[in-house]
Computed example of a mutant assay.
Amino acid sequence: MAAPYDVHATDALLVCTACGTQFPTADRTTLPSCRICDDPRQFTPPGGQSFVTMADVRRRHRNVFHPSTGGNPRLISIASEPKLAIGQRAVLVRTPAGNILWDCLTLIDEATIEHIRALGGLKAIVISHPHYYSSHVEWAAAFDCPVYMRAEDKEWTVQQSPRQVFWSSSNVQEIVVSGQDNVKRATGAKAIRLGGHFPGSQVLLFEGHLLIADTLVTTPSGLGSWATDALGKPSSRPAGMNSFAFMWSIPNMIPLSGEEVFAMWHVLKHHDFTRTHGAFVGTDITAPDLKQRVLESMKIQTKFAGWAKQEAWEGVLSETV
């Protein structure tokens, strides 16, 4: 039987100030740098590598719950304030079979645990990619639940736990959870591996909501509104405006290749959605033609990247299942 979870048992563990990854050590002499930030997809700040303790994080920050993400009361955004490391949000997905946490935050404290338990606790955690692994091992211990990550990205974990589930059998994983009676129940949520940003980068689909983190990067023009012009008259989106970008490195602005973007579509085209939820609070898009906007964004990016196989997009919508 596992020992009861103690939130303060990890107070001395070190956390990277740039990406928020929690390391399984309190000894600074054994941690000269963060391997997540040493990868070309991340970066170190001008001041260089630095670490703080989890106790520092708990003292300086708090998690704030933002209800009704994208207009659906089943989705609740959670973000740390003031901004912590990358600043991503996690999303509590309240399925009929139990709660799923999409992506993860570094900060986990007594107030957060109490609030989530009051909402029904957690049955599973699903993480999009290694930049958001943060302190997922501790979250899983606090709620005694599995964490779903892709096997391709296992090398980026800096902590190990029997609660980690590295799936790889296909591009789609139905999230099934166990109740107190140990009966398996379907949540209606699906983890979908698209790759791109990382080989195992995934999104989560639930009731027409596609939680994308930065597997698909929500752009300013994607969030913009052209419903009316400056005079208040009915208007529409100008041609050529994208809604999403597809990046190998977001902070260093290195785009994915045309082949990789096309491969992402060949997985995503089989799934329908009318809402997307990006990595940060306020990056939600709702539109009846949103799937088409993803495809158009892919075409725009690959065109301006000089992809030689633009004809591969022709007829692609007719293949949609």
Results as ranks from 00 to 15, higher is better:
residue 229 D to G: 09
residue 97 A to F: 02
residue 90 A to R: 03
residue 83 K to R: 06
residue 307 W to F: 10
residue 124 A to I: 11
residue 190 K to L: 10
residue 96 P to N: 01
residue 321 V to F: 07
residue 39 D to I: 03
residue 192 I to F: 01
residue 101 L to M: 03
residue 93 V to F: 05
residue 54 M to I: 13
residue 145 C to I: 10
residue 54 M to V: 02
residue 185 R to F: 09
residue 189 A to Y: 06
residue 315 G to W: 03
residue 293 R to I: 00
residue 282 G to R: 01
residue 303 K to T: 10
residue 32 P to Y: 08
residue 233 K to I: 04
residue 53 T to C: 01
residue 61 H to M: 07
residue 27 D to L: 09
residue 46 P to M: 04
residue 92 L to I: 12
residue 211 L to A: 09
residue 15 V to P: 10
residue 195 G to K: 06
residue 155 E to W: 13
residue 63 N to Y: 04
residue 108 I to A: 11
residue 63 N to F: 01
residue 298 M to I: 01
residue 146 P to A: 12
residue 179 G to C: 09
residue 218 T to A: 12
residue 105 L to K: 06
residue 147 V to A: 15
residue 10 T to V: 14
residue 254 I to W: 01
residue 137 V to I: 07
residue 312 A to Q: 10
residue 59 R to S: 05
residue 216 L to C: 06
residue 284 D to E: 04
residue 39 D to Y: 02
residue 296 E to S: 14
residue 201 S to C: 05
residue 177 V to P: 00
residue 310 Q to P: 00
residue 50 S to K: 09
residue 295 L to W: 05
residue 18 A to K: 12
residue 318 S to F: 08
residue 80 S to A: 15
residue 285 I to Q: 06
residue 314 E to N: 11
residue 18 A to G: 00
residue 139 W to V: 13
residue 50 S to Q: 15
residue 280 F to V: 09
residue 142 A to S: 06
residue 245 A to T: 03
residue 3 A to H: 15
residue 254 I to V: 10
